[in-house]
Write a protein that binds this DNA or RNA. Structure first.
Lengths: 137, 137
DNA sequence: AAGCTAAATGAAACATTGTTGCATAAAAAG
DNA sequence: CTTTTTATGCAACAATGTTTCATTTAGCTT
């Protein structure tokens, strides 16, 4: 099977490498946002720097986006829509479970449009929801 | 003058020390959210670790709160309301200027109430707005 | 004003994360 | 299969987060 991951990479003008396929496969398999550390755990021993650069590249190419969740750790999640290079348009909220620590995208809930105060302009808004997920009820 | 800072420390059951007074004075003087690095710059040579602990303590005691701004850097801002130990109730939005990098609290704009999906519960919501501030128009 | 006691400080040390430069290896193109 | 371009892996380093422990200090009690 010319995997889904390989297809995705190709369609984003990215070379097909081991690392990229593995990382993307992981994102596809899990519905949650993953930190670099999460990925290292899952992937076994991979080069930290290459992984770092892979994530940066994926983000630049619109494959994944940063998922702010109020923790200090950087997390990434798959873009659901067709985000192009540098042009992300994920406006959904992120839910962070304080119990299990998972962060998931909530497509149903959009970040509100804000009317900026005079003199201010708004480029994007982010909505983060914290609480408990259904698994941890 | 038994400064405002000293008063605030006392009312939060905190001992009155040099570091704490200096740090709190800075927060009072500037209306923006400050990172630990910002503070070190402002304060001259102070002990990094003590500063780190001071911030942690302040946050635990409800003097300051973490100001999420979508950057990877942790920032803190003064609590406007009377937040007690461990009981923060700052529900305002944070505005981050992509040009000057400043982060400010926007008391006027509240994070929206979210109706959680079945099985989920919500403890808090955060709203982050990015764009350009009036200074950088 | 002096002493006691709990708490805060400062130093060292270490973990984690973010980041760059460069030689080598691999992918895509011809 | 060779060339060209890009990705990788390693070394090295910067920034940040965090703990342990001996010393100092704030605030209370004489």
């Amino acid at each position: 099977m010319a995997s889904n991951a390989q297809h995705l990479l190709k369609s984003h003008q990215l070379r097909l490498t081991d690392m990229r396929t593995k990382v993307l496969d992981l994102f596809l398999a899990r519905a949650e946002a993953l930190s670099q550390n999460d990925l290292e755990q899952q992937l076994g021993k991979v080069d930290r720097i290459t992984l770092y650069r892979t994530l940066r590249t994926f983000e630049e190419q619109g494959l994944i986006h940063k998922a702010m969740d109020g923790t200090d750790k950087q997390k990434y999640a798959l873009c659901q829509h067709d985000c192009g290079q540098g042009a992300h348009h994920d406006h959904h909220a992120h839910f962070h479970c304080d119990t299990c620590g998972k962060t998931i995208c909530v497509e149903d809930i959009a970040a509100p449009k804000i009317a900026p105060p005079p003199g201010f302009s708004v480029s994007e808004t982010h909505l983060v929801i914290r609480g408990q997920c259904d698994q941890c009820h």
